[in-house]
Amino acid sequence: MQHTREEHGLPRFALAMAKQTLGALRDLAPIFAVVIFFQIVVLRQPFPDLANVIVGLVCVVLGLALFVQGLESGLFPLGEALAQGMARKGSAVALLALAFCLGFGATVAEPALIAVAAEGAEVASQAQFIGDSQDAQDRYALEVRLVVAAAVGIAIVLGVLRILKGWPIHRFIIGGYVLVMVMTLFAPEEIVGVAYDSGGVTTSTITVPLITALGVGLASTIRGRSPMLDGFGLIAFASLTPMIGVLGYGMVV
C-alpha cells in the first residue's frame, strides 16, 4: 500500500499531517476543557489576553502533530538502527559506553533538572546546610546536576546489561526502592525532596523515545530476548538511580 503511493510524496505528507493534527487536537482537548472549566465556572473570570492564548494553542496543536509525525520517521528508526548495529557488532564494551554517554549527555543539559537543582541549592542554603554565598549555591547546584547525570548514565548501562543478560527487572527496581527507603532514613532532611523530584525530571521528551527505541531495538535483535519483556525498563532505571545518587551525595557532603 505504501509503496504504490511513494511517488505522491507531498499529498501523502499532507494527509499524514492532517491526521496527526486531528490526533493532537484530541490529545489536547482535556487540557483545554480543564482550563476553560476552572477559569469560567470556578474562578468566574474572562481569559486574560485571549488573542495570545489562541495563537499559542494553534502552535501547541501543530507542534504536537509535527512531533508525533517525526517520531515515527526519525527518532524511532534512528534508535533502532543504532541498537541493531551495535548488537550485530557484538562488542559489549562499545554498547555499554554508548549507553553511558547517552544517559549522561541527555541529562546534564536538561532544563528541568537545572531548575530543580537551582531550587534545591536555595533550600540547602536556607537550611544552613551549605554556605549562603551565591558561589556555594552554584557549586552545589552544579554538583547535584553532575551526580544526577552520572546516575542516569549508570542507569542506562545497568539497563542495557539487564537486556543483554535477560535478568528480570523487578529485582533491580525493588532492590532500588529498598535502598532509597533505607537511605531516606539517614540522609539530611533538606535533600530528600530534591532527591525524590530529581528522579522524575531527568527524562526529557527527546530522550524518552530515543532510549525506548534503543531498548526495544536491542531486545528484538538479540536472540532469546522478548521486546515486551526485556525491551522496556530503561526509563525506569533512569528515574530510580538519580534518587539514590542525590541521597548519597547528601550523606557525603
Binding site: 494553534v58 501547541v60 507542534g63 517520531l71 515515527e72
Partner: peptide, 19 residues
Amino acid sequence: GSVMVLLGLALFLIGLEQA
C-alpha cells in the same frame, strides 16, 4: 523526521509558554 521532531517540539513549547 528528526528535523520535524525538533521543529514540532519547539513550536509546542512556544505554544505552551504563550497559552
